[in-house]
């Protein structure tokens, strides 16, 4: 765990391992990291917006639960992004297979599930007080 965090902050090691690839590969890896980071930032912004702009909902604490879920997801996406970037950079330099990951699938399922649950909540509320 500590070793992984140290590796994120020590670019020298990442520049010495294996051989230097075509710089365009490194830049593409960096842009993928940035796209993930913006995904995380969007989730965090969504959580912060839910917490301050949504009126209180009929289900107690549903608004807070939604905000907490989005903030947790966003923070996880950001930390995973830098870890995945470092592992991919290593793999490119060593000529290994790129690291496989279930994370995108899990994130998509969680976001989809959250959207379905919210739709159910909206419909139930509409049926109760038309």
């Amino acid at each position: 765990m500590y070793e992984a965090v140290r590796r994120w902050f020590d670019p020298r090691e990442l520049r010495e391992v294996g051989e230097t690839p075509d710089y365009r590969f490194s830049l593409a890896n960096e842009r993928t990291f940035l796209a993930w980071l913006r995904t995380g930032l969007a989730l965090i912004a969504g959580g912060l917006a839910v917490a301050q702009f949504l009126p209180p909902m009929p289900v107690p604490h549903l608004r807070e639960a939604l905000a907490i879920a989005l903030l947790l997801l966003g923070g996880t996406v950001a930390v995973r992004a830098v870890d995945h970037w470092a592992r991919t950079e290593r793999a490119i330099r060593l000529g290994d297979e790129l690291p496989a990951s279930r994370f995108p699938a899990v994130l998509a399922l969680l976001v989809g599930l959250g959207a379905v649950l919210l739709m159910v909540a909206v419909v139930v509320q509409g049926v109760r007080n038309p």
Partner: peptide, 26 residues
């Protein structure tokens, strides 16, 4: 063009905003 510390700093500050938001909501 080489990676440098910008990547981990930006990622961890982002995670820090998530933590601040969580504390405020709680």
């Amino acid at each position: 063009s080489h990676p440098g510390r910008a990547l981990p700093v930006t990622a961890l500050v982002t995670a820090g905003f998530a933590v601040l938001g969580l504390l405020l909501v709680l």
